[in-house]
């Protein structure tokens, strides 16, 4: 997989030079003159990282950071600063920067920082891939099975689910069997885990929790 290093700096000369150096590491480089420029031509792949000059006219700083977090949440953000004042660095890190580099940048530091950022990117991407796989499995469920899934992960017993959906306990058991087969899980606990990671149960009420983990279990 190709890794893209995105360099956003209004100084063309610096951008080019930095790009050349980064290319010698074997990465693909694309340069942008401003934050707006980058947002206008978002990359297809989120493999890589962004090197962003902290001081640019126009969109920059926290505003740009918010926009980037929405548009390319997986791309780690490394700030480039003229002089790394503590205040600027803290602000950047709080706002979600992965790292920052002080100009002029030594090759070794740059390499280290990029590597760290890419590792982070990879982790993020892996997590996302996993979720996407789970999402794909979930999308195989029929609407009826989906209803059953949502109720089961909330801790409803078969009898209760059957009552809720106005059908027989036996039918529910069959649905549950199919669901566990389609999702490739062996226990209800696994089902709950998936539901949680995909954001289907952001709110597990205490009584639900108690239903899953009765005393003595």
């Amino acid at each position: 997989m190709e890794l893209f290093i995105h360099i956003i700096d209004d100084d063309a000369s610096f951008r080019t030079a930095l790009g050349r150096l980064v290319e010698t590491y074997g990465f693909r480089v694309s340069g942008y003159q401003s934050g707006e420029d980058f947002l206008a031509q978002l990359p297809e792949s989120e493999a890589g990282c962004i090197l962003l000059d902290l001081r640019m006219p126009g969109l920059s700083g926290p505003e740009l950071q918010d926009r980037l977090a929405q548009a390319v949440p997986l791309l780690p953000l490394v700030f480039l600063t003229g002089q790394g004042t503590i205040a600027a660095s803290v602000q950047a890190m709080k706002a979600g920067a992965d790292d920052f580099l002080e100009k002029p940048i030594s090759s070794k530091t740059l390499r280290d920082v990029i590597d760290r950022a890419l590792a982070h990117n990879e982790t993020k991407r892996a997590g996302r891939d996993q979720l996407q796989a789970l999402q794909a499995k979930l999308s195989n469920l029929t609407p009826r099975e989906m209803q059953v899934f949502d109720l089961v992960v909330r801790g409803r017993r078969n009898k209760q689910v059957a009552y809720d959906l106005n059908t027989s306990e036996r039918t529910i058991k069959a649905h549950r069997h199919n669901i566990m087969e389609k999702l490739g899980v062996a226990s209800i606990a696994e089902m709950v885990s998936i539901a949680e990671r995909l954001g289907r149960v952001q709110w597990i009420r205490p009584e639900t929790r108690a239903a899953f983990f009765p005393k003595g279990q």
């Binding site: 930095l18 150096l21 002029p104």
Partner: peptide, 15 residues
Amino acid sequence: ELNQPLGAIRSNAEA
């Protein structure tokens, strides 16, 4: 501002 050309020179040289 001075860091821009200096940074560019350094990166270029290392490249």
